[in-house]
Write a protein that binds this DNA or RNA. Structure first.
Length: 302
DNA sequence: CACTTGACCTGTCCGC
DNA sequence: TGCGGACAGGTCAAGT
């Protein structure tokens, strides 16, 4: 569930709450969440993490990066149910609303506990254990294969040609599958894919080959607008997601199709439909978003 | 290569 | 009530 807007919201929280703090010790409750060779474990935790001060909180697509003052960085991916929550004396337990997902920490889903020397903690929680955090030399972050292959994020119009080049290579797949591919458009996940496609009136199953350059440009722009709005609203909380303080995001209250099956389309009133495209639950308006047959796009021949 | 499917996990929800 | 199964979605490995 954490897509670019959720990760960016977490990043902003970490920038405010942990940059400047020094890690005193690290406790790993789930080794799978901190995949480091056991032979180098003591060195990794003892000299690369413990004792280091956090100097910056960065993000690339859905990847979080905490730079340390020893030329190493913590690199993390929340995958579906990961959380990065900070607790200090000022906000530990008491004082949180009753519906807080994280009134008490650590909890059953806590996989890693970063304890700072001022008594505060950064907890990495992950119900489903898909997420991970690792340590790499800071200059090597961009060379992690997954990060090196990422396509552009949609925020800079100057990057549209690169997006276009990459998506054009996948002409025989659905437009939804294409934009979910992080090598094509970085940061988009299931929620913002559906919302962007609704905005541009594109059917999720339409083949890339049948989408015009103008439509691709509109889709690229819509992805940026939808995700920018979501960042402003603290992201989307479907079930698990919370920011670095444990707060939920409110974007889904403004979503047009995601999780709105059966409810009227805000443009035309047609009930939103849910199907499966690219192996994912997919929401769309069957009236506004109609697949254009390939033949209808050709000029009439005479 | 491009593209699709299954695996990784756990909690929740639905039908019986 | 309990239980089995479907489902949720980000990415990778293995398949076509």
């Amino acid at each position: 569930m954490p897509e670019l807007p959720e990760v960016e919201t977490v990043r902003r929280g970490l920038e405010r709450l942990v940059v400047g703090r020094r890690i005193d010790r690290v406790e790993v409750f789930e080794p799978k969440s901190f995949p480091v060779d056991s032979d180098t474990w003591v060195e990794t935790v003892g000299t690369r993490v413990a004792g280091a001060q956090v100097v910056a909180a960065r993000r690339r697509a859905k990847v979080l990066i905490l730079d340390l003052d020893n030329d190493h960085s913590l690199v993390g991916h929340l995958k579906m149910t990961g959380q990065m929550v900070v607790r200090g004396q000022e906000n530990w337990g008491a004082g949180h609303p009753d519906d807080s997902l994280l009134a008490r920490l650590p909890d059953r889903s806590t996989r890693i506990d970063f304890a700072f020397d001022d008594g505060s903690h950064l907890f990495f929680n992950d119900q489903r254990k898909f997420g991970w955090i690792t340590v790499v030399p800071t200059p090597a972050v961009e060379q992690i294969p997954f990060i090196a292959r990422l396509g552009p994020e949609p925020f800079d119009p100057a990057d549209f040609p690169e997006f276009h080049r990459r998506i054009a290579r996948r002409s025989r797949t659905s437009v939804k599958a294409a934009i979910l591919n992080q090598e094509v458009l970085a940061g988009v996940g299931n929620i913002y894919a559906d919302e962007s496609l609704w905005t541009t009136r594109l059917h999720p199953a339409q083949l890339v080959a049948d989408v015009s350059t103008d439509q691709l440009r509109a889709l690229y722009t819509a992805a940026a607008e939808v995700m920018t709005l979501s960042i402003d609203l603290g992201g989307s909380t479907d079930r698990n997601y919370v920011d670095a303080e444990g707060n939920k995001g409110s974007y889904l209250g403004f979503a047009h199709v995601f999780r709105r099956e059966g409810q009227p389309c805000s443009r035309c009133g047609t009930p939103i439909r849910k199907t499966k495209v690219a192996g994912r639950g997919t929401h769309f308006c069957p009236t506004c978003q109609q697949t254009m047959p390939a033949t209808a796009r050709r000029p009439t021949q005479h």
